[in-house]
Amino acid sequence: MHFSSDLWQTKVGLAEMLRNGVIMDVTNAEQAKIAEDAGAIAVMALERVPSDIRMQGGVARMSDPKMIKDIKAAVSIPVMAKCRIGHISEAQILEALSIDFIDESEVLTPADEEFHVWKHDFKVPFVCGCRDLGEALRRIGEGAAMIRTKGEPGTGNIVEAVRHFRMLKNGIHALTVTPKEELMTAAKNLQAPFELVQYVAENGKLPVPNFSAGGVATPADAALMRLLGAESVFVGSGIFKSSNPSKVAKAIVEATTFFNDPNKLAAISENLGDAMQGLDIKQINEKDLMALRGW
């Protein structure tokens, strides 16, 4: 089976190394260097940050390989990049570029509205977004070695990230108190693979690291997601759309480490300049919600 193979464990192994840290969206080599110096544990190379994708519209695709290569050359930390949901060829191109992690991401315009990439076929590990436990386990079933809750990318608004993380956590908790004879029906209701449902029921956690994304704009936002149980935090537009990116980036890294220490968080949050301009989720048309992409 896939889940006992050396390859699978090697993929999850890298995800384990990325725990307790911050992964930052960057759009060029200079930003990647700023992120690395600010303590990022990995960078996500993409052409436009989610807030610009949201504003400018159009089809959002995988980044230019040249730009990904420039970023890889600029930093020593792992480099991730995004492919469109279901876009097998974009994923293959990213693997050919020896990227360290592929994000099959709802931030880009989906290439397939029914099927995701079969991720077990790849040597490169994948991370995928989810809004609840069923979605997380479907992605893991297809081979995602890391899960992140989706949030609503490019909004600078943490409300959806909190909603999705609580949904996921409640789903996990419910399984731990579900009697054995009810697990098959739970799997049916979750629309998730039975063996993964069984794993979560027995262990009280996902079989892969569980991160958070979509809406982090301040150190306090990052600390909140960590308090809720996120093992690491992805930050997209929140850094390079703020008035002082390198200061905000460093502060978010510090807050991720000291999420449980309010005195330190108070000092970390001081005097950071303007955070990115945020968006009220209720003002977004449902058709523009990125979190609803994928199933």
Binding site: M17, L18, N20, E36
Partner: peptide, 14 residues
């Protein structure tokens, strides 16, 4: 532990 040595080293100093 294992992780990203650049990030761990920066934070040790901060």
């Amino acid at each position: 532990p294992g992780g990203e040595s650049t990030s761990i080293l920066s934070q040790l100093k901060w």
